[in-house]
Structure formats: structure tokens, C-alpha cells
Design a protein around this nucleic acid. Structure first.
Lengths: 152, 152
DNA sequence: TATTGTTATACTCTATAACTATA
DNA sequence: TATAGTTATAGAGTATAACAATA
């Protein structure tokens, strides 16, 4: 049998949407324990990936307004997770930088994410894991192609 | 080769998280075109699934405060998508009910979701789709088991 | 007394527009 | 003149606490 049924396709999307809901709930719960929100965590994650950034660069990276970044950085700075450093050549700009506490927290989050991956997949048979990785990579590719079309 | 590597497990989780981001963006964009938000849409979806409900029941279904439901129903009623009907036996309660417009909108959304499933999966080889469905069902099961543990 | 929903209050995330300081 | 970030303002989603009407 090499054809997919409408029902099967709908079931696949349903599973994905259910997964979205469950993961959002799970992540929000974990983050709240560290007094973090998803939006602020995204800022920390971005800084970890690319190093210090101007607020303008963060706004573009998160696809969010400059005003919004001001608020997110205010919150993170208030928790001593990032600091606003002067930009070396442009006195209008600030370089948002992870503090030591921020760096430590991000490293903890990353470790927890690896633990979480272990929890979900550790005793999963290899063929099944391969099925997920191959299939989802395909779906993500299709979604991105769609997204590009939608932006035209 | 029948063992999974740490790297492969981390990659699987990464793909899932990327999917979450992409789907959230995609859905929000589609809903915004109909002047809808994710939270309000969840109310509509719940009413479609189980028929008229009291606000208290909606609060439990969405796992959200009663106050929050008041606001969501206010917004939906303002758009003529739901109405507050008197409860037949309890004069304290209201029965939130889909209007004709609300019913039509939910049906449209469901049709669009089916189209979306086609778009993602139509020309995907059957084994790959099976891999996704089996793998994700497994992951969802593990997540739910975790969630239950976390609530203890 | 307990429950349903609302008002009061507050915080986060989000947006646009006007403004300041610099380029 | 254009750009970086802030202040002003507004709306959605979320919460807790106090309150009114009803059970």
C-alpha cells in the first residue's frame, strides 16, 4: 500500500497540533519556574547563538517591533540576565549582552533541553526515531516553502 | 544500526521545536485574516466539539481563569461569533453558544485545516507519512505521561 | 455556604506613532 | 535626512482578589 488516505493526512496534522499544545504548556511551565517567559527566553537564546547584539538586530531576529525589544530587554536587565553595553562605534545603539547569570541560565536551559530529548527519545527504537527526523525535516521544508510563497 | 545517538535525539527535538515556531506563525497569520486570535479560536473550537457550554466549563476546558473567559467571550460576542444564552436551570450561569456566523466560520477553518494537511502531506510517500504518525503518536504519549508525573 | 460570572487591578507581549539623540 | 532607541498609547491574553446574584 503506497498511497496515503485523507484521513491519515488529517491525523498527522492533528498529532502535530496536539504536540504544539503539549510542548507549549510544558515549556512555559519549566520557564516559569525560572521566572522566565517564552519571549524573554527567545532573546536569551538569540544572544547565546550570535553573541552581543543591538536592539535593532534583536528586533529583526525575533521579527518583532523595536518597542517590544525595549520591554523585553528591560525585563531581562531587571533580572540581571542581560546588560546594555555601549556600542563601540555608534553612540545611538546599545549592545545587549548576556551577564554571567544570563550565560549560566542559558547553559542550564540547554542542558535541560538535552535531558528532555533523552526523556522523549532514549528508549525509542532507532527506526522510529529516523522516521520522525526524516518526516519532520520534510514537513519543515514544505512549511518554509509555503511561508515564502505567502510572503510574495 | 539499531541505537540512537545523542545527536540524533537532540536533532529530533530541534525539528519539533522549529515546527512549533513555524506552525504558530502560520496559524496566527491565517487567523488574523479573519480578525481572530489563537485564544478566541480555541473557544470556538471547543464549542464546536462539545456544543454550548457555561463559562465555567470553558475555563476548565482551556485551563484558564474564569476572568479570562469573560474577556474572550466578550470579544467573540462583539464579533457576533458567539452569544450568551440563559442557562435553562441555573440563573447564575450563561450558555455560550455559537451563532450562525460562528458556526460558519468554524466550518471554514476546519476545511482550511484539511486543505493545509493536503498541502503538507499530499505528495509525501506513504512510508514517510506512516513514520511521522507512528513516531509522533509515541512522542505525544510520552509527553502526556510526563505531564501527569509533573502534576503529582 | 458554595458557585457563577463580573469588576478591579496588574503584568506580559504585541503594535503604531511621535520624539530624542546621534549618524 | 535617516537610524537607534524611548516615551506615549492601545489592545489582547493572562492572573488574583473582591463582590453580586443565585444555588
Amino acid at each position: 500500500m503506497d498511497t496515503t488516505s485523507e484521513q491519515e493526512r488529517y491525523q498527522a496534522l492533528d498529532l502535530i497540533l496536539e504536540l504544539v499544545v503539549l510542548l507549549n504548556a510544558d515549556m512555559s511551565r519549566r520557564l516559569a519556574a525560572d521566572q522566565l517567559t517564552p519571549a524573554r527566553t527567545t532573546v536569551l537564546w538569540t544572544l547565546r547563538g550570535r553573541g552581543p547584539a543591538t536592539q535593532r538586530q534583536l528586533a529583526e531576529a525575533l521579527d518583532v517591533s523595536a518597542r517590544n525589544i525595549t520591554g523585553l530587554v528591560d525585563g531581562l536587565a531587571g533580572a540581571d540576565l542581560v546588560s546594555r553595553e555601549p556600542h563601540p562605534t555608534d553612540r545611538r545603539a546599545t549592545l545587549v549582552t548576556l551577564t554571567r547569570r544570563g550565560t549560566q541560565l542559558v547553559e542550564t536551559l540547554e542542558a535541560e533541553q538535552r535531558e528532555f530529548a533523552s526523556l522523549l527519545f532514549d528508549d525509542m527504537p532507532a527506526p522510529r526515531l529516523h522516521g520522525i527526523v526524516d518526516g519532520l525535516a520534510d514537513v519543515v521544508g514544505r512549511l518554509k516553502a509555503e511561508g515564502l510563497k505567502a510572503h510574495e
